[in-house]
Design a protein around this nucleic acid. Structure first.
Lengths: 148, 148
DNA sequence: ATAATACCTTCGTGTTACACGAAGGCAAGA
DNA sequence: TCTTGCCTTCGTGTAACACGAAGGTATTAT
């Protein structure tokens, strides 16, 4: 039997997180002793490892809760778990695309700043640069600051 | 001069977001009329477009606030803005890597579920499958549900 | 004149996943 | 006995709004 501090060390979670997951009902096998202390056995630790693993895939806690409840129900829920996991994968892919867009945006912004700093600001009369200029017009923070 | 509703339509932001940004001080040129209504001019709308653009790069609001304050200070702050943008780009790249990891995790999980559903669960005695099995052992939610 | 409408305002709460500190209980060692 | 070290619950703060409540104001219709 382990205390909060011990499972925190074992699982690599913080004590706060361990209490949080416990109170959310994500750790089915956790119990209390006479002093109302949370007591964890090996099974609890397995669950916590699993929770950590799912968190690493970006799954929100309430979905993890749903997933765990399905696990407890038994093998009959495997198709539902698969569906849930596929849906979550779609979410993750959408976020990945978003992150790519963010980086692409920032590549352009930083490139424009480099041009200014090295006195190589793009030639607005040269059509070869128009797509960068289009971007500038959409980006108030570049054109305003550079022209004022 | 535009009302909240109008700029919301023009910028594509929600009315809530417009009020939120205004109250956070992100829109320097916004003013109030006799009825204490927020009144926006073309310049306000430009700022809001710029805010939207920065949001699309995933920049948090307090950083946008810092950035705008630097813009108002003038061209002398261009190097600081560049630094800020570069730091934000590093954040965005870190998040991109994280998103890739999430997707990779989920590719494996969903693949394992497909194996179960099609009665093709990996052969635990074949060393060729050991890296998948290692992953299974790390994933309580797979091994527990599949073995119980 | 009055009532309906269409705006606007400022609260205040809920969301996610904890972090952090406060105030207090319990058991063991110096 | 007092300190140490563990635990408990409770309450606040974070980010970026969403949403609703309660109320003010201006225009329009009857």
């Amino acid at each position: 039997m382990y205390t909060v501090k011990e499972v925190a060390r074992i699982t690599g979670l913080t004590e706060h997180a361990v209490r949080f997951y416990t109170d959310k009902g994500l750790v089915p096998s956790v119990q209390r002793n006479q002093n109302n202390f949370r007591m964890f056995d090996e099974e609890s630790i397995n669950w916590l490892h699993g929770i950590k693993c799912l968190k690493q895939s970006g799954m929100p806690v309430d979905v993890i809760k749903t997933y765990i409840d399905l696990c407890i129900e038994g093998d009959s829920t495997i198709p539902q778990r698969y569906t849930l996991m596929m849906e979550h994968k779609e979410d993750a892919l959408a976020k990945l695309e978003e992150a790519k867009l963010h980086v692409a945006h920032l590549e352009e912004k930083t490139a424009l700043y480099q041009d200014i700093l090295e006195n190589r600001s793009p030639d607005t009369t040269n059509p070869a640069h128009w797509d960068r200029i289009q971007h500038m017009h959409g980006d108030v923070f570049y054109s305003r600051s550079a022209t004022r």
